[in-house]
């Protein structure tokens, strides 16, 4: 894996060169496809005007709030579904069904309920990961090998210690998959919703200026997504895989 880093960078630089060459060949007007140099100029300007930082800060705050809310509420619902069979038999299929609905489909309804403001964005951001985390948590708890619970009981675990020291770590690998899926739902639907309403935010930044500004904002969105994956989810999943041997 590590060895291919150089090749990835080389490929990216190569694409950048081809892109620049295409734009300089006059076939592509800059309003249609801005050259990398135009994008760099736009990015430089937007950095110094403070637009980038304001947008990034706003969007990160929204995604963090929506995602954390979804984790708490979805995790709670997932635990309840796993714990109470009657609830699961009725609500389980509904939860899994609603997970299949792309979260941005909630946008019109959320707009009616909350207006074009923060509450609407929170709803659209949180609703996707909420259902994803709930169904992943439910499935993860159900998939815990019964032998772990029995062994822990013979070793004196019960009640709270059974939850915290056995059920939680035993379900962690599957829960992490749900967290990752939930994150991508939150990120995607928030940006889509921001694109649809005016105001501060990365989604709005995408559609504010010319093509060069759009590409600059796209690169920021891409970069943030990669940073969260690379420094957020990957190290945690890597450590869990090493430990659990899965």
């Amino acid at each position: 894996m590590r060895k291919s880093h150089g090749q990835v960078v080389a490929l990216a630089l190569g694409l950048l060169l081809v892109w620049q060459a295409l734009c300089m060949s006059e076939g592509w007007p800059p309003e249609v496809l801005p050259a990398p140099s135009d994008v760099a100029v736009a990015a430089w300007r937007m950095t110094w005007s403070g637009e980038f930082f304001a947008s990034v800060w706003m969007t990160l705050r929204r995604v963090a709030a929506g995602y954390l809310l979804a984790l708490v509420a979805g995790g709670g619902l997932g635990i309840a579904l796993a714990r109470y069979g009657r609830l699961a038999s009725v609500a389980g299929p509904v939860v899994r069904g609603l997970e299949a609905l792309p979260a941005i489909c909630w946008y019109p309804l959320a707009l009616i309920w909350f207006g074009a403001g923060e509450w609407m964005l929170l709803w659209v951001t949180a609703v996707g990961p909420f259902f994803a985390v709930a169904s992943a948590t439910d499935e993860a708890i159900r998939a815990i090998p019964h032998a772990f619970v029995k062994a822990a009981a013979t070793l004196g675990a019960g009640g709270w210690s059974m939850y915290m020291r056995v059920m939680f770590p035993a379900s962690l690998p599957r829960v992490l998959v749900g967290l990752r899926v939930g994150w991508s739902y939150a990120w995607r639907s928030l940006l889509a919703a921001e694109l649809l309403v005016r105001g501060v935010g990365l989604g709005d930044l995408l559609d504010r200026g010319g093509a060069a500004e759009t590409v600059a904002a796209m690169l920021v969105v891409l970069g943030l997504g990669l940073v969260v994956e690379r420094f957020g989810f990957e190290p945690v999943e890597h450590r869990v895989r090493l430990r659990w041997g899965a």
């Binding site: 029995k150 062994a151 822990a152 770590p169 035993a170 659990w244 899965a246």
Partner: peptide, 14 residues
């Protein structure tokens, strides 16, 4: 009563 199961049932996270 100490208990040993067929598959050991050791906790992989520890």
């Amino acid at each position: 009563r100490g208990v040993v199961f067929q598959d050991g049932a050791l906790f992989p996270w520890l």
